[in-house]
Simulated scan of single mutants.
Amino acid sequence: MVVLNKIYTRTGDKGETALGDGSRVPKFSLRVAAYGTTDELNAALGLARLHAEGDEDAALARIQNDLFDIGADLCTPDIENDDKAEYPRLRMVPAQTDRLEAEIDAMNAHLKPLRSFILPGGSPLAAHLHACRTICRRAERMVVELSGVEAVNPDAVRYLNRLSDWFFVAARMANDGGEADVLWVPGANR
């Protein structure tokens, strides 16, 4: 359980932060940048939720919770020794990505196939979801880069990869089921 009695601790004043296992690293470390970008995505998703209602909002709330799970996963290195940890470590699991895939398939079943690339925009919710999609892609790139130098849970990478697809399809749904998508017109301003 998390207990936050005091918000500032001064322990990061020299440019370091603690990871989930208690080890300290520079705040510019790739691991911190990776989970920090998932936190940025979560904040952007909070803005998107201002324009969502009902089932849309519930789906976004589930994703926000998953993003905290990814943050917990990424801030705890040494994945190879999870079985030796004093307490169970929170890691992303395949079921979280499976849920996204099922939701993508359900949303996509209501959309006409694309015949053009679409520009980010349309409704306020769609525009925010497109912004979330691009932040998600950046988070994914950072986690993949991290996995090149340190062990990373592959389920975190898979989740982020699928999540950006989820945001794309959800943005189309938010644009009146794709009817209000803003289509790219190649060379329109020549």
Rank of each mutant, 00 (worst) to 15 (best):
G71F: 00
E80G: 10
R137V: 06
N81C: 11
D73G: 01
P120Y: 04
E86V: 13
R141L: 03
P77D: 04
H130G: 00
A95L: 11
L74S: 02
R89G: 12
A106F: 12
E140H: 06
G122A: 05
I79W: 13
E103D: 14
R91P: 05
C75F: 07
N81L: 11
P88K: 07
T97C: 01
C132L: 05
I70F: 07
M92T: 06
H128Q: 12
P113K: 07
D78Y: 10
G121H: 00
L119S: 09
K112A: 13
G121N: 03
D105M: 06
L90S: 11
A109L: 10
P124L: 04
A95W: 08
R89C: 12
R141S: 03
D83G: 14
L125R: 00
H130I: 01
P124T: 03
R89E: 14
I135C: 09
R115S: 15
I135T: 09
G71I: 00
T134A: 10
L125A: 01
F117E: 08
D82F: 08
N81A: 12
H110R: 15
A109K: 11
A139K: 01
R89K: 14
T134H: 07
T97L: 00
L111E: 03
R91K: 11
E80T: 10
P120L: 06
H110G: 15
Q96L: 10
C75E: 07
K84T: 12
D73A: 04
D83T: 13
A85C: 15
S116I: 12
P120A: 07
R89I: 14
E101W: 08
M92F: 09
L74D: 01
A127V: 03
K112R: 14
N108S: 11
A102Q: 14
I135M: 09
L129I: 06
E80I: 10
I118M: 07
L125Q: 00
A85M: 13
G121Y: 02
T97Q: 02
T97S: 02
D73W: 02
M142N: 06
T76R: 03
C132H: 00
R91E: 07
H130W: 02
L74W: 01
P77R: 02
R133E: 02
Q96W: 07
D98V: 12
P113D: 09
A126C: 08
G122V: 03
T97F: 02
G71E: 00
R91H: 08
H110L: 15
R115P: 13
M107V: 07
G71H: 00
I118V: 09
T97E: 02
S123T: 06
D105I: 04
I104V: 11
L129C: 06
L90P: 09
G122M: 05
S116K: 13
R115Y: 14
V143W: 00
Y87L: 15
C136L: 05
C136G: 01
I104P: 06
D98S: 13
C75L: 08
A102K: 14
